[in-house]
């Protein structure tokens, strides 16, 4: 087991898959010569050369569409978006083309593409650069979405995504890029659609994904120490497919649920999770389900306010106490 950063874990996943399969190509803005806008792809050009690691112009609809077309012929492109916020200029390619082609062709064509990049707020860059489109994208059948929170999951999910024969959109987080964690030396994948109980507890289930998992784990510690409450934290890891069983098993144990995510509340991922719990575990609940999401407004620039707009430890603790009251 080596202790490496989330960024290094992603890079290691790509490096190993580049070595394993010569159809894997890394493509995106500044991924090669510049070594990556966030240095996730650092060193890959040197190691694999310009055929495998390809700089693109600022042309998301063009190069993502190109990757989709190439994937139909068996190439396995791993496309970097500098931010997932920029996916919106390529929405037609990402949704209509990648997401529908298998269906509309009656299963004749598949599209093994990975699109990856950071999708998070909290970086003081304003509304245009702070989108978290996992719910928007996961609402389209044909598309898969994963949101790793730790280096272990980042590597395992990225490798699974690259080997997957469907379009998989990996939402990373710039704030997590330097987080460190243990990652096995040997080859492994984290299958899509398997949640992870990141902390065991008995009194309350917190369901979270992405960086909200880290926030929730910190809140769980405070709840334990200061309030004597035992909190279980379920990390979804994958939004679509969704591990419904792990969520339900935890709720059946604790009988209370708090859902935490960085999305805005309207039609967020947790709207679906709340529906799931009430439809399949209604009788298990001892209290209404609560949610902590970002405050419902475009992302504010002011750093002090942005920290309050997003789910933070204090808000999660306060809301948890309401569910437990």
């Amino acid at each position: 087991m080596a202790v490496i950063s989330y960024r290094e874990a992603l890079r290691a996943a790509m490096r190993e898959e580049l070595k394993r399969d010569d159809k894997v190509v890394i493509m995106g803005e500044e991924v090669a010569q510049f070594n990556g806008a966030y240095k996730v792809t650092e060193g890959l050009l040197k190691e694999f050369g310009p055929k495998r690691i390809v700089d693109t112009p600022i042309s998301e609809a063009g190069f993502i569409g190109l990757g989709i077309g190439a994937s139909m012929l068996g190439i396995r492109p791993v496309m970097e978006l500098m931010f997932w916020s920029f996916s919106y200029v390529a929405f037609d390619q990402i949704v209509n083309n990648a997401g529908n082609i298998r269906y509309m062709s009656g299963g004749l064509i598949n599209c093994p593409i990975v699109i990856r990049g950071p999708a998070n707020g909290g970086t003081n860059v304003g509304a245009t650069h702070s989108h978290t489109p996992e719910a928007i994208l996961a609402s389209h059948p044909g598309i898969k979405v994963v949101c790793p929170a730790t280096p272990y999951d980042a590597k395992g999910l990225m490798k699974a995504a690259i080997r997957d024969n469907d379009p998989v959109y990996v939402m990373e987080n710039t704030i997590l890029y330097n987080d460190k964690g243990e990652v096995p030396d040997e080859d492994y994948i984290v299958p899509l659609g398997v949640a992870d109980v990141k902390r065991l507890g008995t009194d309350l289930t917190i369901v979270a994904h992405g960086r909200a998992v880290i926030t929730s784990l910190k809140a769980a510690e405070i709840l334990e120490k200061e309030h004597g409450v035992s909190v279980e934290v379920v990390d979804l890891r994958s939004i679509r497919p969704l591990d419904e069983e792990t969520i339900l098993a935890s709720v059946r144990k604790t009988h209370r649920a708090l859902l935490v995510e960085e999305n805005k509340p309207f039609c967020g991922v947790d709207a679906q999770v709340a529906y799931l719990i009430q439809s399949k575990a209604f009788d298990e609940l001892d209290a209404p389900i609560h949610r902590v999401s970002s405050i419902d407004a475009p992302q504010i620039y002011c750093k002090r306010m942005e920290d309050l707009q997003m789910p933070n430890v204090e808000r999660v603790v306060a809301e948890a106490l309401k569910v437990l009251a």
């Binding site: 298998r102 299963g107 044909g142 997957d164 469907d166 659609g193 497919p241 591990d243």
Partner: peptide, 22 residues
């Protein structure tokens, strides 16, 4: 059918688990 390759071909080797059609 024909939404996901992995779903149409589920087996020990496929990378997907969990619920994907809701």
């Amino acid at each position: 059918k024909h939404i996901y390759w992995e779903e149409d071909n589920r087996g020990p080797k496929t990378t997907s688990r969990g619920t994907i059609i809701f």
